[in-house]
Design a protein around this nucleic acid. Sequence first.
DNA 1: ACCGATTTGTTCGTATGTATA
DNA 2: CTATACATACGAACAAATCGG
Lengths: 88, 88
Amino acid sequence: MPTDPDAAIDHDGPVTPYRQLADILKARIARGDWRLGRPIASETRLVQEYGLARSTVRRAIAVLVEEGVVWTVQGRGTYVGQPPAGSA
Amino acid sequence: MPTDPDAAIDHDGPVTPYRQLADILKARIARGDWRLGRPIASETRLVQEYGLARSTVRRAIAVLVEEGVVWTVQGRGTYVGQPPAGSA
DNA sequence: ACCGATTTGTTCGTATGTATA
DNA sequence: CTATACATACGAACAAATCGG
């Protein structure tokens, strides 16, 4: 069952918030909220939007990075897709 | 018998992991892995290195703090020795 | 060259829930 | 019931990088 990109975080459910957010973000990317090569919402923005701690948001993003869905650049943002070849 | 600074955690032995780690860290400090006034490995690093939960690592460090072997600063790290005089 | 704002990176502090011996 | 261990979450402070002016 695919995740609803408009779903809210359920703090009481069996699935942890960071996992829920990871799924939601993937659903939003799949839907086209953010396109390939473009930055997704900032961590601060996601904190406000989903009412989670920044550490939790970062953990969700870490999952996406792990899966190769996004990549991050310090001081810039988190981008959809993979780092360009040779991004030293 | 002194603890081997290169010892690994024995999860099945009679000594609890946090005690083992506390002894190992003391042995490593005594050996000179980390010098006076310098930070020891981060909690995250120790978690990875020893395969323990962060709470367990923190508990081991708490022992060292209690014994005056190290002191910690939030957001910075855990340092060998004691806090400088007048560290409010 | 500098400064301020924004954003990600790192680290420790604290608390809760679950599981196990 | 207690101690131990682990996973998770939120809070806070500071560092580092980026970018605009």
